[in-house]
Amino acid sequence: MKELLKDLNKAFENKIRLGIMSVLVVNEYTDFTSLKELLDVTDGNLATHLKSLEKSKYITYVKEFKGRKPNTRYSSTSEGKQAFIRHIKAIEQLLR
């Protein structure tokens, strides 16, 4: 049991962070607004969680301009993908 719990990632305990990772694992990239709409969260809330995932090096971003509007595109790193898959596998094991 302890072995299993070790694989459950603290970074993904939070629902919004789990949601962000779900989106970024299946999409090449997603911008801030789409993430906000998909997860139905506020700007500040989303930004906080994005920052924490960034700190764990699970996601990266590219800032660019669409016309005059800044547009940030987020994508998951391979580290993040692996961590996410380990987390899901641990959940599945736990439920078995």
């Binding site: 629902k15 789990l18 949601g19 299946v26 998909l38 599945e92 736990l94 439920l95």
Partner: peptide, 21 residues
């Protein structure tokens, strides 16, 4: 509880589907 994780998994699947298709 296990229920929390079942719900998590369902939500993950739903978000993946909504975001990519």
């Amino acid at each position: 509880s296990k229920e929390k994780y079942v719900k998590d998994l369902e939500e993950i699947k739903d978000i993946m589907k909504r975001s990519s298709r």
